[in-house]
């Protein structure tokens, strides 16, 4: 029974991922729809990472000793100045580790 449920769950996750990649699906997207969807990357990625930075245990944390916030600001500046994924993640993580070490 558990295995059947797992298979059904797999069917659901796969369907939500694959459905719109199927060419035979009768969906035509016009220029406006495509432009609307062009914002999905920046908007969704932002919506995934902002709660990680700003929320701690169901509460807003904008204190100066929040290592996520301090390191995120450094990462944003690094991304803006270098445009390089390795520099941004490297510097961000470094600041994050120093910061959380200091605030412990």
């Amino acid at each position: 029974m558990t295995m059947i449920t797992i298979l059904l769950l797999a069917l659901i996750t796969f369907t939500t991922r694959y459905l719109f990649l199927e060419g035979r699906l009768p969906i035509r997207m016009g220029a406006k729809a495509r432009q609307f969807l062009s914002y999905s990357g920046p908007a969704i990625l932002t919506a995934i990472c902002m709660p990680i930075i700003f929320i701690k245990d169901h509460h807003l944390n904008v204190a100066l000793n929040n290592p996520y916030l301090g390191a995120a600001i450094v990462a944003i500046i690094a991304a803006w100045k270098t445009g390089n994924i390795y520099w941004t993640v490297g510097l961000g993580m470094l600041v994050f580790l120093l910061y959380s070490g200091l605030s412990l």
Binding site: C49, P67, Y68, A75, A79, G83, I85, V89, M93, F96
Partner: peptide, 13 residues
């Protein structure tokens, strides 16, 4: 935080 940093690196540019 690595997730946040990577997404920042992808979104900001």
């Amino acid at each position: 935080f690595a997730i946040a940093a990577t997404f920042i690196a992808l979104v900001v540019p």
